[in-house]
């Protein structure tokens, strides 16, 4: 058991180092000069003043040091929880900007992932081997899962937002309100949350339902199902066992899907101008804000790795065979 988790942690550690390195490299090798764009924004015309400001900014962001020193500094700062200072909303620290956006992204992602996973699996399991339901759930599932997140988001925004006028199509809350713990604000928040949530939820739902349906059919034809049926066990018991076994590959599927879901959430946020990490990434790119971009990516990488690690642990709990493997028995 310890060896298993030791190995897993090593792999996650390596992934983390590579991700951090790539993360550090991408903005630096991107075309464009952020200091120049900051100078342009400040509209200073005297050449001497411009030169002074350039020197100040270059020093402030550490660009005057050799590139390997910048890399080491980056790691050092990372362990102190220091992601640098945002260029876009100068001089707010990146960590603060991200922490302001994270609740929106998590509030969108976690319910969408868990609910679509739970309901999708139930739906798929229920449809398997029931002709009428199967004939509806399967094609609908294929259509849903084939839809790109942002496309469905646009359709929902247009249909339920613009045309029907039931839901707002932009923002995390109404601009007329100040964030607070009042009922009015929470209801408003939920109202704005519905459409982005729905677009993420619906697309993911189809994939889970199809996967589960196929797995259940496979399990219902397996030997232990046949044996139980030959001994006259009721369908309820056989299906319960089949579900328990079919959920195992689905858990692996969840681990694999997390990255895709995060990406989907980012794009969906942009469609709905939802103030989460996705919108932040867009802003960071538009403003050549290295530090913000790095910080946001960092956050996503850590989140995905953490979620995968949790899934690894869950898998060990639900599948006794992985535990047997750890003990050294075949």
């Amino acid at each position: 058991m310890r060896q298993y988790f030791g190995r897993k942690l090593l792999i996650y550690g390596l992934t983390f180092v590579v991700a951090v390195t790539v993360n550090w490299m991408i903005p630096r090798f991107m075309p464009g000069d952020p200091v120049a764009s900051m100078l342009a924004r400040s509209r200073v015309s005297q050449p001497a003043a411009v030169e002074a400001m350039r020197a100040y900014y270059t020093n402030l962001f550490g660009f005057d040091q050799p590139i390997w020193q910048q890399y080491l500094n980056f790691w050092g700062a990372l362990f102190q929880g220091d992601f640098g200072i945002s260029i876009w909303v100068f001089p707010t620290p990146v960590a603060d900007v991200i922490l302001g956006a994270v609740p929106y992204t998590l509030g969108l992602m976690i319910p969408a992932v868990l609910l679509s996973y739970w309901i999708g699996n139930r739906l798929g399991a229920f449809a398997a081997r029931r002709k009428l339901l199967d004939n509806t759930v399967l094609p609908v599932g294929y259509v849903l899962t084939a839809m790109p997140y942002m496309w469905l988001a646009v359709i929902l925004a247009w249909g339920l937002g613009v045309t029907a006028g039931w839901f707002p199509v932009a923002g995390g809350y109404s601009f007329a309100l100040q964030p607070s713990w009042s009922w009015a604000f929470l209801v408003n928040l939920l109202h704005h949350w519905t459409l982005p949530f729905l677009s993420l939820f619906v697309v993911a739902l189809g994939g889970w339902a199809i996967g589960m349906r196929n797995m259940i059919i496979y399990e219902l034809e397996s030997d232990y199902s046949n044996y139980l049926a030959a001994l006259g066990a009721p369908t309820r018991l056989i299906r319960r066992y089949a579900f328990r076994n079919a959920i195992l590959p689905q858990i692996t599927g969840l681990a694999l899907q997390l990255g895709v879901l995060v990406a989907g959430a980012l794009v969906t946020e942009i469609v709905f101008s939802y103030p989460g990490l996705g919108s932040l990434i867009l802003k960071a790119i538009q403003n050549q804000d290295f530090f913000l971009l790095q910080g946001t990516f960092m956050f996503i990488v850590i989140g995905v790795l953490l979620a995968n690690f949790i899934i690894d642990i869950v898998y060990v709990i639900v599948d006794p065979r992985t535990r047997a493997g750890m003990a050294g028995a075949a």
């Binding site: 397996s222 044996y227 328990r244």
Partner: peptide, 8 residues
């Protein structure tokens, strides 16, 4: 393979 692999 006649017994459910995930039950004692």
């Amino acid at each position: 393979s006649a017994m459910n692999p995930t039950r004692r």
